[in-house]
């Protein structure tokens, strides 16, 4: 069983086709699968649905696939800072399902854990609740949300060992863990593949059972949306 692939293109061979539901990790541009999204763009598959917290920005992240009109629908919590997205959305070319951020994360987690639906108080009494079953527990209303069962998971991590055990770095972990678990096939791009035994078994963020294919995606762009700094105090 070899999980390591030589390129993002090779890592996606045989799994891409039109109309897929893809769960993608990342928050803003932090922890997005840069090389795998490039490879999806280059493969030219279309009518894709992305479950992803954000839709990238102009020509970054999923924004690259919006530009090439490969995306049919987004399931996201926040899609600001993206002019091409806005244009396609207002023109009716792009469908958007707005999903509260925590509900989106839980829908992915639930899908990956074999849970087709769960009740949450998030969104009760709002547009998000429209058309959804309401159930009362302990005198409080909850709405039924469905797990996401994706065809493919695209994930960015820091390090993986050769068996697919994965660790993430700082806030780049974000949606990558729940997204990884909810796809039939999970492809992870990493900054470094390390030998088996060099990751602490007590500190694995995503166990290898969830990971089918691994590729090194370096070098990374790692764009920053808002660089904020403070002055160094005078000594």
């Amino acid at each position: 069983m070899k999980k390591i692939y030589p390129s993002a293109e090779a890592a996606l061979e045989g799994v891409l086709k039109d109309g897929l539901l893809i769960a993608a990790g990342g928050f803003g541009l932090c922890g997005i699968p840069e090389r795998l999204l490039d490879a999806v763009r280059d493969a030219g598959v279309k009518d894709l649905t992305f479950a992803s917290n954000n839709a990238g920005i102009d020509n970054e992240g999923i924004g690259k696939l919006l530009r090439t009109k490969q995306v049919k629908k987004m399931i996201s919590s926040y899609v600001g800072e993206n002019k091409e997205f806005e244009r396609q959305y207002l023109a009716g070319e792009l469908e958007v399902e707005f999903c509260p951020q925590g509900t989106l994360a839980e829908r992915m987690r639930a899908g990956g854990a074999g849970i087709p639906g769960f009740y949450t108080k998030t969104g009760v009494g709002t547009q998000v609740a429209e058309g959804k079953e309401v159930k009362v527990f302990g005198g409080q209303e909850y709405i039924l949300e469905e797990g996401i069962f994706a065809d493919l998971s695209l994930v960015k991590a820091w390090k993986a060992d050769e068996t697919g055990n994965v660790v993430f770095r700082k806030t780049a972990r974000n949606f990558n863990v729940p997204a990884a678990t909810c796809g039939k096939i999970c492809v992870v791009e990493v900054e470094e593949i390390v030998p088996v035994g060099s990751l602490d078994p007590d500190a694995i963020h995503l166990p290898g059972v969830f990971v089918q294919r691994i590729v090194v995606g370096a070098p990374y762009d790692k764009k920053i949306e808002f660089t904020t700094t403070r002055e160094r105090e005078a000594v």
Partner: peptide
């Protein structure tokens, strides 16, 4: 233009 609720609905609910 709707940008989305982000985490606001989860925060106020929980």
């Amino acid at each position: 233009m709707i940008k989305g609720m982000g985490g606001a609905m989860d925060l106020v609910a929980g």
